[in-house]
Amino acid sequence: MEQHLTQYRIFYAVARAGNISRAAKELFISQPAISKSISKLEESLGIALFIRNSRGVSLTAEGQVLFQHVEAAFEALDRGENELKQIQNLHIGQLKIGVSNTLCKYILLPYLKEFIAQYPHVRILIESQDTARTISMLEQQKLDIGLIAEPKNRRYLSFLPVMRIEDTFVCTRSYLENLRIREGADVDPFESGTILLLDRSNMTRTHIDAYFAEHGIEPKQILEATTMDLLIEFAKTGLGIGCVIREFVREELKDGSLIELPLEVPIRNRTIGFAYHPTAMTRTMNDFVQFCSE
């Protein structure tokens, strides 16, 4: 489009008003300025757009053709502005979150329930995956937010802590009693029992393996699971001693369906929070971060 948008806006106003004086009042522009703009537009297009008469102006046949296109263009612009106002007023947006199955169930969903109640027009997309994948996608700006354990190296990520978690070992009382009957009262549960762990692709497993190595613990029998929920169910069924997050088995510890094995040295706790790329903040991301901060 070679012509300046202002010239088309003036043309549009004059064509609708049928009078240069009325168009001037509508646009808060002087009549000579409007006449000059129309003349420049006609000159650049090489065609007359208006027929001047004593009552005002009317469109030529060619002017009518141009008006139909200009009218459609300005109506499209008006629709665009109205959509933007609606997005702003209703907080319409999209949020793509990366999170593991465990953290999604026990931490993210309670946050989302309250967030969606406050911002019902935000579309939530969830990438269910391991923490390493979430961090990688955050760094590539393929995710808006990631719910993860605080990484040692944040690189370019910002991190909003929301809770601290501690890993522990649990089993049924009957499992421990039967283990002692078979192996003796002084049995080492880690040496003689079946230890239930997440698979090696999980960051929690890496954390526990580091704890084992630091304290010289070498489990002889390991049963792996892909999710924390499975570990908890395995332990409740009596399959072995599960390494779980204490905060996620509070009810089981309270009602006695699971008991906690005492450790000489507690496992170092971890901080869980929302990670995001600060240079890629959208309004929806900012709303979510502020909501979680409060």
Rank of each mutant, 00 (worst) to 15 (best):
M137R: 02
Q129S: 14
L239Q: 07
M203P: 03
G256S: 10
G193R: 01
V244T: 04
S192C: 07
D186V: 11
E166D: 02
Y175A: 06
A210H: 13
G238E: 12
K236L: 14
L176R: 06
C171V: 08
D130W: 05
S136V: 09
Q140T: 00
L179K: 01
E224S: 08
Y211C: 01
D229S: 05
K236H: 03
G240T: 02
L196C: 01
D209G: 10
R133K: 00
R250N: 07
L160D: 06
L157H: 05
S158E: 12
R205K: 02
E183D: 12
I259V: 10
E214A: 02
A235S: 14
D186W: 07
F212Q: 00
L239V: 03
T204G: 08
M163E: 15
S192N: 13
D167T: 09
L176M: 15
M203N: 08
R246T: 08
G238T: 09
E247Q: 12
D144P: 09
V170L: 14
F169E: 01
D167C: 13
C171H: 00
I245L: 03
S136Q: 13
K220R: 04
L253R: 01
L197C: 10
T134H: 04
P151A: 12
E214C: 04
R246E: 10
L239F: 13
D199F: 06
E251Y: 06
Q221M: 10
L253H: 12
E224H: 07
D167E: 10
T194H: 09
T227D: 01
E214P: 02
E260H: 01
M228W: 07
T194Y: 09
K254V: 03
D229Y: 07
E233R: 08
L261Y: 03
I135A: 03
L176I: 15
R246K: 06
L138S: 14
Y211Q: 08
E224P: 04
T194I: 11
T204R: 13
D209Q: 03
C171M: 14
L230V: 13
D144W: 05
E247N: 12
Q141S: 09
L179G: 11
S192Y: 12
L160R: 01
N178H: 14
R164K: 15
E233Q: 10
Q141C: 11
L138D: 01
L198C: 05
D255G: 04
L239P: 05
A185K: 15
G193N: 04
N178T: 14
G242A: 07
D255R: 10
I195Y: 02
F190A: 08
F234W: 08
N202W: 11
S174I: 15
K220W: 00
E218V: 07
F169D: 06
T206C: 14
A149Q: 08
L160T: 03
E139T: 06
I145F: 01
A185G: 09
A213M: 12
C243E: 02
A185S: 13
I232K: 02
A225D: 06
E177G: 04
G146W: 04
L160S: 14
T194F: 08
A210T: 13
I217T: 00
A235Y: 00
A185V: 15
K142A: 11
N178E: 15
L176H: 08
